[in-house]
Amino acid sequence: MAHQIDLKTFTDDRGNLTVIEKVIPFDVKRIFYIYGVNEAVRGGHRHHLTRQAAISIRGKCSIYNCDGVNEQVFELDQPHSCLILETSDWHQMYNFSADAILMVLASEYFDPSDYIYEPYSK
Rank of each mutant, 00 (worst) to 15 (best):
A2K: 00
A2Q: 05
H3C: 07
H3K: 11
Q4F: 06
Q4T: 11
I5H: 01
D6E: 11
F10Y: 14
F10S: 11
F10G: 01
T11W: 00
T11F: 03
R14F: 15
R14Y: 15
R14P: 14
R14T: 14
N16H: 11
V19N: 02
V19P: 07
V23S: 09
V23H: 09
F26I: 10
D27L: 08
K29Q: 13
F32N: 11
I34C: 09
N38F: 02
E39H: 09
G44C: 06
H45E: 04
H45F: 09
R46K: 08
R46F: 05
H47L: 08
H47D: 07
H48E: 11
L49C: 12
L49F: 13
R51G: 04
R58M: 13
K60S: 15
C61V: 13
S62C: 14
Y64K: 07
Y64A: 12
N65Q: 12
N65F: 08
C66G: 01
D67Q: 01
D67G: 04
V69N: 09
N70M: 05
E71Y: 05
Q72Y: 13
V73Y: 01
E75I: 13
L76I: 10
L83Q: 03
L83G: 10
L83H: 08
L83F: 12
I84K: 09
E86Y: 09
T87N: 05
T87C: 15
T87A: 15
S88C: 13
D89L: 03
D89I: 06
W90R: 00
W90G: 05
W90C: 07
W90Y: 15
Q92E: 15
N95V: 06
S97D: 07
S97F: 03
A100W: 03
I101W: 01
L102D: 09
V104E: 05
V104T: 15
L105W: 03
A106D: 01
A106E: 05
A106Q: 04
Y109H: 06
F110Y: 15
F110T: 08
D111E: 10
P112V: 11
S113Y: 07
Y115L: 02
Y115S: 02
I116R: 06
E118P: 03
E118V: 03
